[in-house]
């Protein structure tokens, strides 16, 4: 058990290290160096030289990688080419905003998805299930920029209930952020709920067909207790990892949602960074997103280990 957790941590770090290497190499392999790319037409003469000196581009790649990695280990992400500012101050507040957006959507969406998934499984192939499942297919297939656009025109333009485009300073106080994120959260939630609901449904259907649920019925238990105590925990266990994978996978969607709503988070920042050819910023953002992915998976793995008696007590059984 302890070994398993140690291994997961170890693997998470190795993964991040490899990702940092891949990100660094990928950027190196791109045509032109960071300064040429950023300066574009003006990449010549003194200006280019200055830029290269400032960002140490005249040193060999492995030296820069080591310097970069050392910086990362100390929490120094490097320096933005465009803004000539430490990247922490560029990314920090935007990362906070994205976290607020993502966590709100997850906090509202996951319980709703589990609830709907259980209902759909219990009413399998009945009208309610068909309705929930069809709606899920619909929302998981429509691109976020379409749902987002439609939500804006309905809730904001037509009804005038919620602000459409987010207009706020990057480091606005949290209260103000919450006042603005209604529609972006809704957009993210629709996709997320659809995906997770489908997983919970099919996992629940598997469990409902198992011997132990049949036995709990033949023991004389009430339907509520059968579902809540016997079926649901066993249906959710295998789903935890999938939910984490899914949330991580939906991060790509955050990128689009932030652009649609003009929301100042790391998603929109990465699109801008790439459009600006600000490679140090891109590298830092890629690594940050990879860490979110790795972190989520790590949490899910450990949660599964702790919640699943079969894994938790393997050691105990062996003794």
């Amino acid at each position: 058990m302890l070994r398993l957790i140690t291994f997961r941590f170890l693997f998470a770090f190795v993964t991040l290290w490899v990702v940092s290497l891949v990100v660094f190499i990928a950027v190196e392999l791109l045509p032109g160096d960071a300064c040429e790319a950023f300066l574009g037409q003006m990449a010549q003469g003194q200006r280019l030289d200055n830029c290269r000196v400032e960002h140490r581009l005249n040193e060999p790649a492995y030296v820069r990688y080591i310097a970069w990695a050392q910086g990362l280990a100390q929490g120094d992400l490097g320096k933005s080419i465009k803004r000539s500012k430490p990247l922490e101050s560029v990314i920090g507040p935007r990362f906070r905003n994205t976290l607020i957006l993502g966590l709100t959507a997850a906090a509202l969406g996951i319980p709703l998805a589990i609830f709907l998934g259980v209902l759909a499984a219990l009413w399998r192939d009945k009208k309610a299930d068909l309705f929930i499942s069809s709606a899920a297919i619909f929302f998981m297939t429509i691109p976020e920029f379409i749902t987002g656009t439609l939500l804006i025109s309905f809730f904001s333009v037509y009804l005038g209930w919620l602000p459409g485009i987010v207009i706020m300073r990057v480091d606005a106080p949290i209260i103000e952020v919450f006042g603005q994120i209604g529609l972006p959260v809704l957009t993210l939630m629709l996709v997320m709920v659809a995906h997770i609901m489908r997983m919970v449904r099919s996992s629940m259907i598997d469990v409902l067909a198992s011997d132990f649920v049949m036995m709990s019925e033949l023991k004389g238990l009430s339907k509520t207790r059968q579902v809540l105590r016997h079926a649901l925990p066993n249906a959710l266990l295998p789903a935890i990892n999938l939910i984490a994978l899914n949330i991580a996978w939906l991060m790509g969607g955050v990128l689009v949602v932030e652009v649609v709503f003009n929301y100042p988070g790391i998603g929109r920042l990465s699109v801008n960074a790439i459009a600006d050819r600000d490679f140090p910023l891109v590298q830092a953002l890629a690594l940050l997103m990879a860490s979110i992915y790795v972190g989520l998976n790590l949490m899910a793995d450990i949660a599964t280990l702790l919640l699943n008696p079969k894994l938790r007590t393997r050691q105990g059984a062996a003794q």
């Binding site: 693997f11 190795v14 993964t15 991040l16 490899v18 990702v19 891949v22 990100v23 990928a26 950027v27 791109l30 045509p31 790319a37 991060m251 790509g252 990128l255 990465s270 699109v271 790439i274 459009a275 050819r277 891109v282 953002l285 890629a286 997103m289 990879a290 992915y293 790795v294 998976n297």
Partner: peptide, 23 residues
């Protein structure tokens, strides 16, 4: 599988954008 797991951690949207921006 370890290689695959590692590559799954790469934020591919950013990579896609980066590759398209460059190539």
């Amino acid at each position: 599988m370890r290689t695959v797991d590692t590559f799954l951690a790469i934020p591919f949207m950013i990579f896609l954008l980066l590759i398209i921006a460059s190539f």
